[in-house]
């Protein structure tokens, strides 16, 4: 897999491995729900071949869950000199670079399970809706520290829209 996108000269900071638990649990729940919903037609119609649908969904869910650890490991970020750079995804890779001066606000979100494990999710908002930089699975103290640091950096490099 040498063709994968890789930025030379970047040392990625990874998110907490505990986030794997959160992601796995989330994937299991959504996988079960998707399987249940897709099995409704087969259940009510008693047409045997309709069971293929939930079976496929279940298999895809299991594969997705199996890859969660690697996917979580693929999430990375780095605070460069003037911008924040973020990556995620294995099959569908995405790299985003956001200059500090463009950050309009930084959100911290904590779901119930993530909170139990002491994790937080950081969300960056720019004037463009499509930037979509969400950094999950940060240890709470790190998240707050990172937020303060980013706000400080954004303040010092404030630019117009």
């Amino acid at each position: 897999m040498t063709d994968r996108l890789e930025l030379p000269g970047t040392t990625w900071r990874r998110v907490s491995p505990k986030y794997i638990v959160v992601d796995v649990v989330g994937s299991i729940i959504s996988g079960i729900m998707a399987t249940a919903v897709t099995s409704l037609p087969a259940y009510f119609s008693h047409v045997a071949w309709l069971w293929i649908l939930p079976a496929v969904v279940a298999v895809i869910s299991i594969i997705t869950i199996a890859f969660v650890p690697r996917r979580v490991k693929s999430i990375g970020y780095q605070l460069r000199e003037d911008d924040f750079i973020f990556r995620r995804g294995l099959m569908f890779q995405r790299f985003v670079a956001v200059p500090y001066g463009r950050m309009q606000l930084v959100d911290i979100n904590r779901g119930p399970l993530a909170r139990a494990l002491g994790l937080s999710e950081l969300k960056f908002v720019t004037a463009a809706a499509s930037s979509g930089v969400v950094l999950p699975g940060l240890v709470h103290e790190d998240a707050e520290e990172l937020r303060d640091r980013l706000v400080e950096l954004a303040e010092s490099r404030r630019a117009g829209l």
Partner: peptide, 25 residues
């Protein structure tokens, strides 16, 4: 506002990628 580069499985096989510049909507 920000710059992104993206690659899905098909693009990877072809050794290609997608570039996106995020601007206001």
């Amino acid at each position: 506002q920000s710059v992104a580069i993206y690659q899905g499985p098909l693009l990877r096989v072809l050794r290609l990628a997608t570039l996106t510049l995020h601007t206001v909507a």
